[in-house]
Amino acid sequence: MTTLMAERHPSDPLFRADRLPHIWCPGCGIGPAMHAYAQALVESGIPLDRHVCVSGIGCSGRVPGYLNIDSYHTTHGRAIPFAMAVALVRPQLEVAVFSGDGDLFAIGGNHFIHAARRNVDLNVICINNFNYGMTGGQVGPTTPMGARATTAPYGNYEQPFSLPYLAAATGAVFVARWTSLHLRQLKQAILRAMKKRGLTFIEVLAPCPVGFGRPNEIGDAMEEMMLYRERCVVDHGAPLAALDIDLRQRDHPIVLGNFVDIERPVFDPLAMRRPAPEVEDHAPLARKEQEG
């Protein structure tokens, strides 16, 4: 049997297939991560009509526009407060924020830490490709020290964030890191996040061959993927303070895993007015919706 040609992919119903092919560059790591999320939507058992995906600006911010669910492509950095409101008004919905490292942790960093502190019922999935891809490869809050970017032509001199460390420190109840290569593990992590109530955070390391790879002597997307294959170590119990990444340090392992999985009271603006502590359902407006 040889290759058979097809017009449609079995996953097409999960996408707005009339918009494919997407805008991302050859070898971009966003596509596989979006596929893992799309498969998790189905496998979660939650009807597609109850999933919502919200993003900010940037390459990763384009994800919701390709998903065949209610989806909102908002302003730069503001996906989290927008999504928080959707989740509070309609607590029966499963709301995800799917965006990039610059959007979520530079311009939107304040919103992330406060959403994690409050433990808002959101699943935050962050594509980390170590640079601003859409604007052409500028330095960002996760760019490793020394790495080159169009706005760091002599090398980045700023200490980057370690995103899982930050997420754990600010209160996220589930914190994981996977890559655009570790797709089954990524999907399982997303499914776990969908089961949990409260703010979950999943970092997805992804190649950006044009914006980050090229100026940093990573030949192409394939080479960055190979680098993940060779250097990634799965260690769920790794110390959170030891999760720094530097793709260019060849002897430095990249630690992946589901690092945090804890329970904490979920953000509920009406919590202090509820008659008795509720074990299961902290859903705001739940009473109202039952009545109405």
Binding site: L4, M5, E7, P21, P26, G27, L181, M226
Partner: peptide
């Protein structure tokens, strides 16, 4: 059985190498 949608491919070679 392998099925391919040629018009979508951008030649990243991930499927081939992995």
């Amino acid at each position: 059985q392998v099925y391919v949608i040629p018009s979508r491919c951008k030649e990243c070679r991930f499927c081939i190498d992995f």
